[in-house]
């Protein structure tokens, strides 16, 4: 196979995959312009109900507040998570010993229990320390995740120890090495981590719904849940709402993926 045919094959496979991947999103956009009856009838052509759906949605849910809340919580959660977990992932790998490896195992286990079973104990704890109904209580359980720690731990493995040693000889402190060398080098890992953390934070909904007693703290996923719970569901309006909810993560990824550049770091370990 020549280089050209290989590239052509890649194009065909990738474009096909991309089309299959995007199809539901396009359908969502089309559905947002149709009436409820047409949406569930499977109509695939755009309609004229977009403005009506939009007005209905505004009348039904305070989506601007929902978007504001969602952005507020997701951004805070993403920033804090990334900082805490990249520090930990780096620490677990660069200073690894058998204790830290064992601790990593324990941390991994903490994600293996369905959250449903932890809700009642967690609720008791939060109530005991008066964190119910608070922003901190909202985001605290999902700040530190084994997944992110492990992601940064595995990316730190490809970070050359020689660079660290050299920096130490230059007199850089351990924390400075992390900030000045690891963070800029691991741009692509950070890009991936930011996207998925934002996405998870954006969709995070059941715990906040349980502890927040305040309708002004509703986020977009909560509002979508509200839209589907009535005797009558307006699917056109619903599709508009889910489309709006999907957009931020998609746009964020589009910006973040620019950091995936081939071999920028110029370094392979091993």
């Amino acid at each position: 196979m020549t280089d050209k045919t290989r590239t052509l094959c890649s194009y065909i496979v990738l474009i096909l995959t991309a089309v299959i991947s995007v199809f539901p999103l396009i359908w969502m956009v089309i559905a947002a312009t149709n009436s409820s009856v047409d949406v569930i009838a499977g109509k695939l052509t755009p309609g004229f109900k977009f403005i009506e759906n939009y007005q209905n949605l505004l009348a039904n849910q305070d989506i601007y507040r929902g978007l504001f809340n969602s952005f507020k919580y997701s951004i805070v959660q993403t920033v804090v998570s990334i900082v805490i977990c990249s520090l930990a992932g780096y620490g677990f790998e660069v200073y690894h010993d058998k204790y830290k490896d064992a601790l990593m195992g324990v941390i991994l286990m903490s994600m293996m229990i369905p959250f449903v079973s932890m809700m009642v104990p967690l609720f008791r704890m939060f109530s005991a320390v008066n964190l119910l109904n608070t922003t901190i209580g909202f985001i605290l359980p999902s700040l530190s995740t084994p997944f992110l720690i492990m992601l940064f731990r595995s990316s730190a493995r490809s970070f050359p120890m020689e660079m660290i040693e050299a920096a130490r000889i230059d007199g850089l402190g351990e924390f400075q090495i992390f900030v000045k060398m690891f963070v800029p080098t691991m741009k692509s890992t950070y890009a991936a981590a930011i996207t998925v953390t934002f996405m998870n934070a954006w969709n995070n909904y059941i715990w906040p719904k349980v502890i927040m007693q305040d309708s002004s703290s509703q986020t977009m996923p909560m509002m979508i849940s509200n839209l589907t719970s009535g005797y009558f569901t307006d699917y056109g309006m619903l599709m508009l709402a889910v489309f709006i909810t999907t957009l931020p993560t998609a746009v964020l990824f589009l910006f973040m993926q620019k950091n995936f550049r081939e071999g920028l770091t110029g370094s392979v370990k091993g």
Partner: peptide
């Protein structure tokens, strides 16, 4: 955590 728990809108 008790020290900084703001009581936002709850009873």
């Amino acid at each position: 955590p008790q020290a900084q728990a703001p009581a936002e809108g709850g009873d």
